[in-house]
Nucleic acid binder design. Sequence first.
DNA 1: CTAAACTGCAAACATCGTTCGCGGTTTTAT
DNA 2: ATAAAACCGCGAACGATGTTTGCAGTTTAG
Lengths: 232, 232
Amino acid sequence: MSDARANSRAGDAAPQSIWTRPVRGSRGPVPAYSRDAIAAAGIALADADGIAAVSMRAVATALGTSAGSLYRYLSSRDDLLELMTDRAIGELRPHPSGGDDWLAGILLLARRQLALYGRHPWLLDLLPRTSAAGPESLAWFDTCLRILEPVDCATAAKFEAIAMTTGVVSLFARRRAGSSSFALTGVDLTAHPHLAAALRRPVGGPPRADLFDRTLRILLTGLLADEGPDHA
Amino acid sequence: MSDARANSRAGDAAPQSIWTRPVRGSRGPVPAYSRDAIAAAGIALADADGIAAVSMRAVATALGTSAGSLYRYLSSRDDLLELMTDRAIGELRPHPSGGDDWLAGILLLARRQLALYGRHPWLLDLLPRTSAAGPESLAWFDTCLRILEPVDCATAAKFEAIAMTTGVVSLFARRRAGSSSFALTGVDLTAHPHLAAALRRPVGGPPRADLFDRTLRILLTGLLADEGPDHA
DNA sequence: CTAAACTGCAAACATCGTTCGCGGTTTTAT
DNA sequence: ATAAAACCGCGAACGATGTTTGCAGTTTAG
């Protein structure tokens, strides 16, 4: 009987997202900074020194204002991160039109996404945490669906395929960004015979330059092409 | 000519990892807490309230000591997170022995890993950040290699297959843990016709209960079985 | 036995995200 | 036109965080 801040109250509370929040009020002076400029400042800091360098004070200083002032535009630091995420995804424009070969189209999208991760490695940390998809994310998703339009399968399967594709892209991006290698110094290898044997063996040539395309091709044909038009 | 703290100095500096750091010195009193107890306290906090609840003070209070005292065991909070990660991976023991069917063996490992992610969702944030693999991670990797032993392909291909498998497992775990759905309230769907059409359509039955096995089977057979014994 | 090395602890430091109150500015309502 | 309301920028402050430091007590090496 207490706790009146539950949902479905008279003053319908918005979901507290940046995208539902009005860009500016209709009463006061015009804001000095745009959302895009704020996001760009955060992205510049993240590109230079990692996501940990993106503090409210650092972004505010880069913009020429103070930390408290940023809360006129954002309700939290997470809002800033979502702004940065969506602006980075906006760099994927212009979206390819895609021809009749849907697999080639998705592969092109995947390569663009991989390049984006290369330019902004911090996206690997932010993308899985986005609570509400921003406008650029929605547009990108719409493009994915458009390219998959000739595929005749259930809608849920397309969603799964898109999610799995972006996931696999992030896996490749992470391996490229991170050190990816083990730090085996001072490890007792006698207790791990198979690992020791694998390391004793020569690595075996370059690591298959086309592994990215190969993996996605395998995955997508297996997930989409093998299916009949079941379920609507 | 300043900055004498470069590498390769006379007092050979260890790589500053938890696993190379000695558990205890040989001079003072016996430490009051074990590494395992510290990791367990952190895991309990992370299981209960997420990784953000794992602060030095919180872990210290749970153990009955103070924050500063923890730095007798760890050199940073990241060390604590690596301790937690490796202890959680230790929950995968006992490792299955694996029969002659390597695909079934890897699938069993993958299911165990997925269940582990379900028990400890914070592992999704920590595992991709581990800088040096701990002993339990190494043992697990050795088991993966043992199960892949009958596969006749390059060592690098096995490494890639293992990495991709654990990656795909994390993707499924993330979809299970996160809300995964879009927050489409208040979005202008007219600008995204394909997304609007996909949402208008019925979802199309349950989301394929065997998608996990199917995906991994497709991926592993495509990555390993199709290859000849090239490269050593 | 002495000195070195180690432990636990409390206090302090710098930084972080966030809140609050102020004066000034723009719009709405009367 | 005038007053009230809503908004902006700003600086100071609050609580919490990771980490460092100095001190007293304890154990081992030489």
